[in-house]
Design a protein around this nucleic acid. Structure first.
Lengths: 93, 93
DNA sequence: AACTATACCGGTATTAGTATCACGGTCATG
DNA sequence: CATGACCGTGATACTAATACCGGTATAGTT
């Protein structure tokens, strides 16, 4: 087993993540936001619909910047939205 | 061409990103931090050495949480370290 | 020298992210 | 209805991330 498939929880987390991005996009079109972030509209669509549940960090960073979102708040919002134990996101100190 | 390879600038950004993580890790071992973040030590090593220049968002989030780093500061630190125009990171509002 | 722990490296296997192409739906125009 | 522009979507192509294995090098201990 060299690369475990994404767990259902990770898929669900991706769906929540996409929902947050879509909510933050509001009335703006996909092409508008995608162009502002420097990614293709299809990529944004896949992330928003949860078909790309674990997008690249800098892709998310560019989208968050285009949408005016905080990466930290985005991360905790995905983990906090459901009944997760949150252990993977607890601070080190 | 369906997926453009990573540009040299993206590779260099990945190296800066890995250097930041390694600096934040300090005296702690790779296995220690990797276990705390829930990723394999090889993955952490590849990210730190720049061999995985564009890691997944939640991988970075878990590592940042284990290291006590801010994702926003991490993103701007990578983009700010070199002579980039920074247009892909300008705030929307 | 042998043992242990840490980190680096190459190879390998498999899933997943990203971009291009082609299609359907909606709205405005004629 | 026909055409065009914009939006969202599905299929497809290709690269990259992640993880496992074995080997190598350094440093500390005995």
């Amino acid at each position: 087993m060299v690369r475990v498939p994404l767990t259902p929880e990770e898929r669900q987390r991706g769906e929540r993540f996409g929902a947050l991005l879509r909510q933050a996009r509001g009335e703006r079109s996909m092409v508008e936001v995608a162009a502002a972030a420097g990614v293709s509209a299809e990529t944004l669509r896949k992330i928003e619909t949860g078909r790309a549940p674990t997008p690249a960090f800098f892709t998310v960073a560019a989208l968050a910047a285009a949408l005016g979102l905080s990466l930290d708040e985005l991360a905790v919002a995905c983990a906090d939205a459901s009944g997760r134990d949150g252990s993977e996101f607890r601070r080190a100190g």
